[in-house]
Simulated scan of single mutants.
Amino acid sequence: MNKTIDIQDLGHKDYKETWDYQEELFKSIIAAKVKNKREEVHVETSNYFLLVEHSHVYTLGKSGDFSNLLLNEEQLSKKGAFFYKINRGGDITYHGPGQIVGYPILDLENFFTDIHKYLRLLEEMVILTLAEYGIEGQRSAGETGVWLGVGTPFARKICAMGVRASRWVTMHGFAFNVNTDLGYFDNIVPCGIRGKAVTSLNVELGVEKVDEAQIKTKLLKHFMALFEAVPSQETKQSQFA
């Protein structure tokens, strides 16, 4: 089993370009697995973790309700935002500046074959990162992601999640609000959940801006520990060395 992960910080990148890149990596892993099975050989499959920040964009999961987007095409254009119907689970969400988006593209057969465990570990990565800032991140029954104030009238989501998996290979991932303009969430019913708010780490800490590079370092530290993984040789030669 290959437990090395190639970590790539893509910086600020267009959503569609990043989606296409995810698909390319995703399909390359699946092709290797199919070849291994067909030819009864074993070539180690790769694992990737992409970090990125997008321009304003709304994405709707494959089973999502289009009515949860509260803007028409003209209004989207005026806000400088794009919209995509995509192939992950979950409903509608927003991506934009000040939000750390992570796309783990893993062959889970290198780690474990349990999608629920995978989602819980992604949540745990964010919960452990929040704890380093003195904030108690929580899970909410039946609602994937990381929340604050669960069970109170002030319940609010700080990290959304939506994934796709095929042949135990994952794509898409999580969106962690760090310095996010929360006004953009007013244009949707976030994750299709009515009556619950969305928040950002800078709001919770009462500061203008949180160091996003520091957040990435903490997320990666917890991710690698939870998945018992090590950085790939390519990663060791990058800024994450």
Rank of each mutant, 00 (worst) to 15 (best):
I92V: 09
Y94E: 02
H95M: 12
H95D: 15
P97N: 13
P97Q: 10
P97F: 08
G98K: 09
G98V: 10
Q99Y: 07
Q99M: 12
Q99I: 13
I100G: 07
V101W: 02
P104M: 11
P104H: 08
P104C: 10
I105W: 07
L106F: 13
L106V: 12
D107C: 13
L108A: 01
L108V: 06
L108M: 00
E109I: 05
E109F: 07
E109R: 15
E109Y: 12
E109C: 12
N110P: 08
F111E: 06
F111D: 10
F112Q: 14
F112T: 01
F112L: 06
T113V: 01
T113N: 15
D114K: 02
D114C: 02
I115G: 07
I115E: 06
H116D: 14
K117S: 11
K117R: 12
K117A: 14
Y118L: 02
Y118C: 08
R120S: 01
R120V: 01
L121Y: 05
E123Q: 06
E123D: 02
E123A: 07
E124H: 03
M125R: 08
M125C: 13
M125N: 00
V126P: 11
V126I: 11
I127E: 00
T129A: 11
T129R: 09
L130D: 00
L130A: 11
L130M: 07
A131N: 10
A131S: 14
E132K: 14
E132Q: 11
Y133R: 10
G134E: 06
G134C: 10
I135C: 04
E136V: 03
G137P: 15
Q138I: 12
S140A: 15
A141L: 11
A141Q: 12
G142K: 10
G142A: 15
T144H: 10
T144V: 05
G145W: 13
V146I: 07
W147C: 05
W147A: 07
L148T: 04
G149W: 00
P153E: 05
F154D: 15
A155Y: 00
A155C: 15
R156N: 03
R156H: 01
R156L: 02
K157A: 09
K157Q: 01
K157H: 03
K157Y: 09
I158T: 03
I158N: 10
C159D: 11
A160N: 13
A160Q: 00
M161C: 13
M161T: 00
G162I: 03
G162D: 06
R164H: 09
